[in-house]
Design a protein around this nucleic acid. Sequence first.
DNA 1: ATATTATTGTCTCATTTTGTGACATTAAAT
DNA 2: ATTTAATGTCACAAAATGAGACAATAATAT
Lengths: 243, 243
Amino acid sequence: MAFKENKKLPHFEEYIPHLAYDSVIFGFNGRQIKILLLEYHNTGLFALPGGFVKRNEHLDDAVKRGLKGRTGLDNIYLEQFHTFGDTTRAAPEVMRTIIEANKMEIEEGNWLLDRFISVAYYALINYDDVHPIPDELSDSINWYAIDELPSLMMDHEKIVEKALKTLRENLDKKLTGTNLLPPKFTMKDLQHLYEAILGEELRRTTFQRKMLGTNILMRHEKLFGGGAHKAPYLYSFKTIGDG
Amino acid sequence: MAFKENKKLPHFEEYIPHLAYDSVIFGFNGRQIKILLLEYHNTGLFALPGGFVKRNEHLDDAVKRGLKGRTGLDNIYLEQFHTFGDTTRAAPEVMRTIIEANKMEIEEGNWLLDRFISVAYYALINYDDVHPIPDELSDSINWYAIDELPSLMMDHEKIVEKALKTLRENLDKKLTGTNLLPPKFTMKDLQHLYEAILGEELRRTTFQRKMLGTNILMRHEKLFGGGAHKAPYLYSFKTIGDG
DNA sequence: ATATTATTGTCTCATTTTGTGACATTAAAT
DNA sequence: ATTTAATGTCACAAAATGAGACAATAATAT
């Protein structure tokens, strides 16, 4: 959870109480899958970017609003994957610590100290065109490789795990228009992405045949300058209307 | 949404406001997939069985509580599949109609008239050992074949659609211990179940080979008396510990 | 008893998909 | 001009799946 307003706690009247969202924002730097994590100043606490849902706001829109605030991006690929409803999903001490580290006050019984049910989404974004924006209130934000995460607050590690599991399961079905790569990429880039997500090596020829077989790729000009060898083609994902 | 307490509306203090669950309870009668629907007396309104989450109750437990109330069953196979968060998910007129049809009063501004976010689950139960229990407050409950549903309130049709879609996608991965069949069943029974869920016919020999290949079935004695032909074996799903 | 009938369990072969390696091609470096 | 290393494509092997054939057999009819 994090707050966007300037040094003011989100107000009860404006939001649905007991309900939050958390987002696992995936990016790919060409080698590793990374996610965005907030770090709360002076607390050493790491957390997923999250937020609250306004009383008259679509759940999905709340998540998009948070993503826009953190990344500056619109039209992010977004997928809801699970809602976490443990009774233990409250962290009054943590919340208090964070708020006090920011030299703010929170009264006993404030809604932020309550138990929260959280709807979790994952997002896929192009690592290159994002300069993560830290909250003005309380945190810095940075990329962390998926297999080198710091320990996270509450059940956020479980959330990341489930996000990754879902991403893997959806890879073949739903990644057709992935935002994890730049608009044009080589077959090798795409293979590296798959390997990073799946955490296993793939066979080059089989992968290439499979990808070309799906008919979701458009072939473009060749990419020269890659080294002392045959130049690879560039590809992009077909969008509706492309040949 | 439906209420369990006797002729008393659920009280704000006890539940998390703005949050509900809905359950798509699947059963199989040997030929068709059916789901349980509530019908509100004197209103002609059909709805999914749902309910609210207590302030200190695990989300999953709230759903189990509702299922137990409606079916009398414990240990039901349950899978969360989506959380619906439209801003239009409020039905004050409908709620008012239902409550008034029960000769009860509801004040302006009652929490039940608010907008709700709903976490949706599907359940798989053995059609045979369930005698659905109607709410004391407001409804009758009955089985309806999945392709002959009456029109449902709010977005409940969308919820059913998504439940069925998820069930189909999960069929091979997660149906291993399905509760949709009696403890022992023939290969033909199992095939009929798959066909009913998928909505398509399957090839007998291929299906049988695939099922035996998964190694999740235990073969038992033969079932005699089925007709003028070779008697089929009975099978059950292996549970941990079975050979 | 015996023959008939319909469904089952299993096998075989065809087809499709996937795994695996080979090989000619080619852009840059030497 | 030659060397080097990755690419695109093909060819064959292995595995999975589609589709039918067929003997076995439990109840029914004769």
